[in-house]
Nucleic acid binder design. Sequence first.
DNA 1: ACCTGAACACCGTTCAAGT
DNA 2: ACCTGAACACCGTTCAAGT
Lengths: 230, 230
Amino acid sequence: MKPTPQSAQAKTLDRSQVVAEALHLVNQEGFDRLTMRNLAARLGVVPMALYRHVTNKEELIDAVFELALSDIKLPDPDLTWRPGLDALARAIRELLLEHPPLAVEVVGRPTLGPASLRIAEYGYRVMRTSGFSDIDTNGGINTLVTYVIGFTALEVPRRHSVGANPPPDLSKLQSLYADLPADQFPHTVQLQPQVEGLVTPEQFDHGLTTLLDGLEHRLQDSKNAASQCR
Amino acid sequence: MKPTPQSAQAKTLDRSQVVAEALHLVNQEGFDRLTMRNLAARLGVVPMALYRHVTNKEELIDAVFELALSDIKLPDPDLTWRPGLDALARAIRELLLEHPPLAVEVVGRPTLGPASLRIAEYGYRVMRTSGFSDIDTNGGINTLVTYVIGFTALEVPRRHSVGANPPPDLSKLQSLYADLPADQFPHTVQLQPQVEGLVTPEQFDHGLTTLLDGLEHRLQDSKNAASQCR
DNA sequence: ACCTGAACACCGTTCAAGT
DNA sequence: ACCTGAACACCGTTCAAGT
């Protein structure tokens, strides 16, 4: 009996194995340890074997992002806009923190795969069904996603050590603030107790609340404008 | 007469030349074309000559960032908080857009040099002297800077082609939206006219206004709380 | 004091060859 | 159909040597 294409040759490499192993590698060793040669070694195979399943390194990286992002747990689609966007923002941040090296690298890499589209679609849904205009919806999701990605990308290198990168060295940071000339940086010096815990979950909440407050203000404005036209 | 250290040997390499040439290289050829070998060639020197002025590539990159950031034009320090932060945000964005490859790379790289400190100090100043609490000031500047850097970093690869990277390919993007299954992505499809001009200056304004509105809300709240205590 | 040359341990990828 | 080996054109950096 002839073996069917899927069932036979359990020993052979397969694209999803390659991508999954690449994601593990990135999380364990850091983004710049993701080399074709290193990945091949982990799969017990010669470097060139990978090129049977992936056209080049760039495509492999895209696939790694898509795999990681597809794991996101989107909130209940029937939430109203404010709890919905709040939960969405936290879900994105949580996902990124599970893959610190990707959190940094995702900026500057336009990821337009299905996973990203599903995330945006969720945001569009809760805003539009809550009465936001199309312009405010597009702008709002854009701002929200930018904030979450930006915040997390700036947070990660300051908290976790990514790959072989330097440890957080909080003491060095403190002495930097201590040595600051108070005449040139009076406010920075006086704010030191606030600034020291440079990136905290509370600051994420603070910014997110500020942002949602701003959106609420926008929603009120357009409602007022609508009722005045009546 | 013995030549003084600064005046003599005009032919010799000097650290500021190395860093300046590195910045030019990055802007002309892209961030990943910044290699010690490539830089050395542009300076008409052998690669190892650079290590006399810079301890390694990492330090060189830090110096390149510091040089670029030190060019920022800070707004009038006597502005009140809202015009001050608005102008600060635009100044940061403008500077980053002058160095597209750096705009992308600055995320995930904690830049704590004098230039960054001056930027933060300006923001702290206008907020505190306008009555914001220390917590709101720290959170506010953090959020603002995060938004500006995040937005610009996401914007650049979609507008300019950075180094040898792919051109913007707007047509590909449009066909991607055209092929989207309308039952799975109803809102994304309906928003297509908004989403298409994916990252625009208007969207930057939209997000910035939202953010400043949120901060204004916060300032009102703390003022109300203060007057109630009286 | 500053620059050089050769070398080491790495990269991604091409190409012709094996099974 | 899938994997291999050798090779090419690159990296950052060390080390001993030149002037």
